[in-house]
Amino acid sequence: MDERSRSAVTHAHEEEVLARIAAGLVHTESEAAFQASRRRTEQIFAYNHTPPGEVEKRRALLVAIFGSVGERTVLLPPFHAGFGSNVHIGDDFFGNVNLTFVDDVDIRIGDGVMIAPSVTLTTTGHPVHPARRTDFGRFSEPIVIEDKVWIGSNAVVLPGVRIGYGSVIGAGSVVSRSIPPMTVALGTPCRVVRAITDEDLTTRTAER
């Protein structure tokens, strides 16, 4: 087989793996290894070790790390990401310390989102049966966080979840299902406890 033929076979294999990933099907570490060049490990390390006063350098690193990033972004180091390049962040974002993106596929965050310390956004899970976890077998589904969402400390958002506009996720919650707009949701598993209404304009916290 000549070089052109080998290249065509490799390309076809990669396209097949990408299609399986996009469909949320199980794939292995070895099968997905060709995506390694999209990992922004060095830039993430550099960002986490950049002094706070070097604002322009921090901004340049965020642009290099993320798939897209809006204006007036605040992300307090350290943060962690599997790729970085699969994360898309809107304007006026605030992310507190120890934010973790497990971004094997897209994580899309809207405008005006606030995320408290030690939150994990993970697009990836693993099969229950150990035989299917050979070579780190896994599946991935994208996460969407709409505009004006606030996520409390130590929350975990799992694969395939969409959090609707304006919603509040309570601290320590495990979000395994999508959350509708303008609601307060909390717990393990995370469940909607009430709607956000105009009465909340006069209160200090979601719980009063």
Rank of each mutant, 00 (worst) to 15 (best):
E56G: 10
T41G: 06
N96E: 05
L201D: 12
A19D: 10
G112E: 11
V128E: 13
E207D: 07
R59D: 03
F136C: 15
I65W: 07
I163P: 00
D103P: 13
I179D: 04
A36P: 05
T205R: 11
E3T: 15
A60K: 10
A185F: 10
S167I: 02
D103I: 05
V156N: 11
G24L: 11
L76F: 05
T28R: 05
I169C: 01
A206E: 03
P130L: 01
Y47V: 00
T205H: 04
A32E: 14
G67I: 05
H27F: 06
I21N: 01
P159K: 10
T124S: 15
I89H: 07
V87P: 07
A206D: 06
I115M: 12
L121K: 06
G152K: 02
D198V: 01
V74E: 06
N154I: 03
A64W: 04
R59H: 09
G70L: 03
V128H: 07
S7G: 01
G172K: 09
D200W: 02
T122F: 04
R132D: 14
P52R: 13
V144N: 04
Y47E: 03
Y165T: 09
L76R: 14
F101C: 06
N96Y: 04
W150S: 11
N86M: 10
Q35K: 09
P180T: 10
T122D: 06
I179V: 12
R38D: 07
K148P: 05
R162H: 15
H27Y: 11
H49R: 09
V128P: 01
I169P: 02
F34K: 00
A81T: 07
